[in-house]
Design a protein around this nucleic acid. Sequence first.
DNA 1: TATATATGTCAACCAACCTGACGTATTTTA
DNA 2: TAAAATACGTCAGGTTGGTTGACATATATA
Lengths: 175, 175
Amino acid sequence: MSNRVEIDESAPDAVRNAPQNTGEQDFRLIELFFFAYRDFIADADELLAEYQFGRAHHRVLHFVNRHPGLNVAELLDILRITKQSLGPVLRQLIDAELLVQEAGRNDKRLRLLFPTQNGRNLSAKLTQMQTRRIASALQSLPDGDRERIEQFLFGMIEPGERAFVESLVRTGTED
Amino acid sequence: MSNRVEIDESAPDAVRNAPQNTGEQDFRLIELFFFAYRDFIADADELLAEYQFGRAHHRVLHFVNRHPGLNVAELLDILRITKQSLGPVLRQLIDAELLVQEAGRNDKRLRLLFPTQNGRNLSAKLTQMQTRRIASALQSLPDGDRERIEQFLFGMIEPGERAFVESLVRTGTED
DNA sequence: TATATATGTCAACCAACCTGACGTATTTTA
DNA sequence: TAAAATACGTCAGGTTGGTTGACATATATA
């Protein structure tokens, strides 16, 4: 069988020029953001692969660590996934003894999620890798620009979500 | 069948306290980056869904628009995926007449990729949505902070990748 | 007691990747 | 000029991380 590509004579015309990096087309920041995020995630991916885990596990581990005692509904709300897709991830993390479940004291329907010491350790390791990358990226900037970066990232978040994100992000902040 | 969760008496101990937002654990920027990227992507996802397209289509459309005449190997190198996974995406974009292929003039083995006018239009629409979100995030910052943001994002990129990304990002920049 | 809530689970499906193997057109090299 | 390398396409089968829908159970609330 031939896979010779016949160029369709009636094909729509190719546009041959590159678009410009104008005010309406901020390619520079769009692409930098894309590649920055790719590499921000990459470190963690490597470490997680040793455990046969993926990004889904990372996110669950991260937020349970940050908010010990979180219940399933709250976790789903943060991650914006369905309980059906959370199910296997949660089970694997519990089987690996990185998380534990406890029934709520007052409301026994709730399954409260806590990290184990191993879970805390792995999460800390992942967080440290990302923290180091951020720190080195901040290093080249003037002191005080950290707040500008925070402000920029916060401004990228959908306005209706900002209060919620702010409440998550404030946790554990001494101020 | 009962799904009563028996709390395993021998379960590892739960860690009950939240970790702190210290120098070693930069939760604030980590989480802001996570949520910012999520929303940065979300606008485009919605528009793409109308075409039954996903993020893979977006990325291909974006880079072919930015670099008209790109060949398949170069595209794979930017996207870091295999040709097997690019295949269906490319075919769908060509079938939808958003992209066209042409054999290379000098090297006829090459398949050069170009956007059609429709492809250019859709890509521009997607880029504009992301550009607007970025612009509104920058609005609250002092003038000139744009460069700081660029510098920060560039600093997040793996050092070995920076030259390549810089060469991609420079395309179409008048300076 | 009836209903609502929180969670778990079964089944079927999908998007977007992957590896491996192989075919064809074309170019380069020996 | 024949052989090897390159660029690309494609078939087959697998994985991860999601989805929707339906339903069961334990517990809480009205």
